[in-house]
Write a protein that binds this DNA or RNA. Structure first.
Lengths: 157, 157
DNA sequence: ATAATATACGTTGATATCAACATAAATATA
DNA sequence: TATATTTATGTTGATATCAACGTATATTAT
């Protein structure tokens, strides 16, 4: 006799699942910021990725993937359109032939500089939206989401 | 003369962007729950989607997409493997020929019933992980993420 | 020095995600 | 009733996401 699935189970998952809620929030926020960046021809993911490359020392792929809590191979795929458009540059590391260093091109840096005020405006708008919801602790929300993204991404060997 | 992009901009985005943080958290959590559900051959997204179909009245696609804060067309694509595997059934609405009602098959319901305790275990594990972080307001985190996912998803006409 | 292990990355295949475009049916308006 | 509008959905193309598998290089152990 097969186990049944009471409606209470659905309610339990809907009301408690942090994973579901986060995926849902991620979709909603992605649509918002994607729309904001559309005139630049980039997505929020591309904005975040490129922004993480704005360092003195060009980081290797592994470092960037870890910082983004993203699978290594996802990063490889995500770089393709950016490299193709000349926004990002990959170069070999002279010290370690295996590693690939990632850096912004001048064009990429310029695009980010132009998109930055748009990001600020959109972020302010979201902050205002959240402020309208009474009794929402934004500090706790922010730090909590931060912690959620800091789990490591090691693959079992 | 092109605008420059100071390192402080990178830090500002890294430390403040709720969108970035949420995407990052969504990836980390998805990997975790995907791994937990792997023996059932489903992902966390498929679990959430199927769970949202466990109702008396089979919901139409639009309702489900709105509930998941997911684009309509994403839902269409996400249903394909589930229908193919016989876990979900789509049927025409006699009252409205345009609408397609979504329901779980017995097999789908059975799979969810078996996966439910695994979900509980994994969720408890995440809760414990978060509890280890001092000074984290889980209630505030949970409700805040909930609000973030409740933005509407209307397309401009 | 050689073998074993670990590290850094790529490719392929499947699903997830959404915009742009398109169709058909229901509803409202004239 | 005929037309216009709205609603519910599908298709295509591009990017995002990750697991499984594979390759080459660096490091460690023998």
């Amino acid at each position: 006799m097969p186990a049944s699935l009471p409606p209470s189970a659905t309610v339990e998952v809907r009301d408690r699942c942090i994973c579901f809620r986060t995926q849902r929030a991620a979709r909603a926020l992605a649509r918002r910021f994607d729309a904001a960046f559309r005139s630049f021809g980039i997505t929020q993911g591309q904005f975040s990725l490129m922004m993480s490359l704005n360092r003195d020392q060009p980081p290797a792929m592994g470092e960037v993937a870890a910082f983004l809590a993203m699978d290594r191979t996802t990063l490889t795929a995500a770089l393709k359109p950016l490299v193709r458009r000349g926004l990002v540059l990959t170069s070999a590391d002279p010290k370690d032939t295996r590693a690939r260093r990632l850096s912004l091109t001048d064009e990429g840096r310029m695009l980010l500089a132009e998109a930055l005020p748009v990001w600020r405006d959109e972020h302010d708008a979201v902050d205002r939206l959240l402020a309208l919801e009474g009794g929402l602790d934004l500090e706790a929300l922010h730090s909590g989401i931060g912690v959620l993204g800091q789990q490591n991404i090691e693959r079992s060997k």
